[in-house]
Design a protein around this nucleic acid. Structure first.
Length: 423
RNA sequence: GGAGAGGUGGCUGAGCGGCUGAAAGCACCGCACUCGAAAUGCGGCAUACGGGCAACUGUAUCGGGGGUUCGAAUCCCCCCCUCUCCGCCA
């Protein structure tokens, strides 16, 4: 949610930011509504001030036993009423219209974000690792999984339908090991606090991170009106909703290993084979809540935390700075981590680390108290550290062997009970 | 699911139709006292949005929404949340 005051101060910059997102200028319309709302409010407030004053006089008159004066004053208040009610109604209407326009607008891109309409304009900022030369035809993760007999899409379809998978034995263990490995890394070495959050959340929480009201179609809703989290970002970020934090509470760094649920509406036909795009997948999420001046540095730090997972698992990746047109709505600046997939011969997204500025904080009303006693919106960041399902895909494909087995990278072996190889 | 109790400022907690944006205490910030500190005393200290060059000032906010009333933290209705007991249950 944008601060209407900042739009008032610099409407050109606001529209320019939206333009980078590929959106038309809207500041003139917003400011017209804003002016109208303020004018109506001022008129209403003056009428209310008058009414309050008269009410005080009525009280005084009644106390003095002067019921005649009291009656006369009551009549006068009555005459204010119609105007007051009308004014309030139109004020509410204008305010609602302004809000409806504001709450669906995405965040403005940071100055350091490159221009561009889609992923082709993203900028590679670094690359790590060399894709292995296999010496044989790379098999896809689902071929490997099928070969091992431990990845079952048919069974999953029978139980749940398309876009689900059933893992067995060593692969089920592998998923659990990867998640535990990631959480342990982030807590033990990077200072994140592990959280076991709700997976079903209320609308207010989804609204707070910016996924409602605009992206309702991407989510699953329960019969009692709650939502299944599409990412633990929703649960973790909202932990500070409606709170005033002390400066000493910041930075707040949280991590959680949770399933994520996405309807994948609009993704029909994409990634239909394998487990790249599921209705349910496991993800270790990172969330930071920081003071505004810290958010840029925190963004780099968080991205580095996610990258470290890939380094330790010996998975080649590149880090992309997303262009303005390719970022999610809440983000001001985003790095995507893309891991090498031998079967596709290209890099695929495995993590997305975003700095959201005060966009989510305003929607959640999450603030912190500065040393000089002001309450300012915090800055929030979130990132995958990493998407566990896709990490497993990358691990299987990158560490596959000619004999159809898969070598478990040494860093992960403690979480696999010492196992060195699957198959 | 049934019965009951309750949600007030950063925290605790009074108020239960007008003098209450809200007592008191704690916390916090000034000042005094002190060589310094503690203790003590005095003063200050909610948030949001407006108006005003400013001093200052208006409105709203006592979980959320609606209603009654000239006037609501206080009365009525609906919803949300918390707690206690009973039932059910991983």
């Amino acid at each position: 949610m944008h601060d209407i005051r900042s739009i008032r101060e610099n409407p050109e910059a606001f529209d320019a930011g939206l333009a980078r997102r590929g959106l038309p200028a809207i500041s003139a319309e917003l400011l017209a509504l804003d002016t109208s709302a303020r004018t109506l409010a001022l008129t209403r407030q003056n009428a209310e001030a008058r009414r309050n004053e008269l009410s005080r006089q009525i009280g005084a008159a009644m106390k003095a036993g002067d019921s005649e004066t009291a009656q006369r004053l009551k009549a006068e208040v009555e005459s204010l009423r119609a105007a007051l009610d009308d004014g309030r109604a139109s004020e509410d209407e204008v305010a609602a219209a302004l809000r409806a326009r504001l709450e669906v607008l995405p965040n403005l891109p940071d100055e350091t974000v490159p221009d561009g309409a889609d992923e082709t304009a993203n900028v590679e900022v670094r690359r790590w690792g060399e894709p292995r030369t296999l010496g044989f035809q790379a098999r896809s993760h689902f071929e490997i999984g099928a070969g091992l007999g431990l990845m079952d899409f048919e069974g999953a379809a029978a139980v749940a339908g398309a876009r689900f998978v059933v893992l067995r034995g060593a692969l089920a263990r592998l998923e659990r090991a990867l998640a535990a490995f990631m959480v342990d890394l982030h807590t033990a070495e990077f200072g994140y606090v592990e959280i076991a959050p709700p997976l079903l959340v209320r609308s207010e929480a989804v609204y707070g991170v910016g996924q409602l009201p605009k992206f309702e179609d991407d989510l699953f809703r329960t019969t009692d009106g709650r939502w299944l989290i599409s990412t633990a970002e929703v649960s973790l970020t909202n932990l500070v909703r409606e709170r005033i934090l002390r400066e000493a509470d910041l930075p707040m760094r949280l991590t959680a290993d949770t399933p994520c649920f996405r309807s994948e509406a609009g993704a029909a036909g994409r990634d239909t084979r394998g487990m790249m795009r599921m209705h349910q997948f496991r993800k270790v999420e990172l969330v930071s809540v920081v003071a505004p001046e810290e958010s840029a540095a925190e963004h780099e730090r968080m991205t580095a935390c996610a990258e470290e997972v890939l380094r330790r698992l010996e998975l080649p990746f590149r880090t992309m700075l997303l262009c303005a047109g390719d970022m999610g709505a809440a983000a001001r600046r985003t790095y995507d981590l893309e891991v090498w997939l031998p079967s596709e011969g290209r890099y695929r997204e495995i993590s997305s680390c975003s700095s959201c500025g005060d966009y989510q904080a305003r929607r959640m009303n999450a603030r912190y108290r500065t040393a000089d006693g002001r309450n300012l919106p915090v800055h929030t960041l979130n990132g995958s550290g990493l998407a566990v399902g896709r990490t497993m895909v990358a691990l299987l494909e990158n560490h596959q062997q000619a004999d159809a087995s898969v070598v478990i990278p040494p860093a992960l072996r403690p979480w696999m009970g010492g196992m060195e190889r699957i198959g």
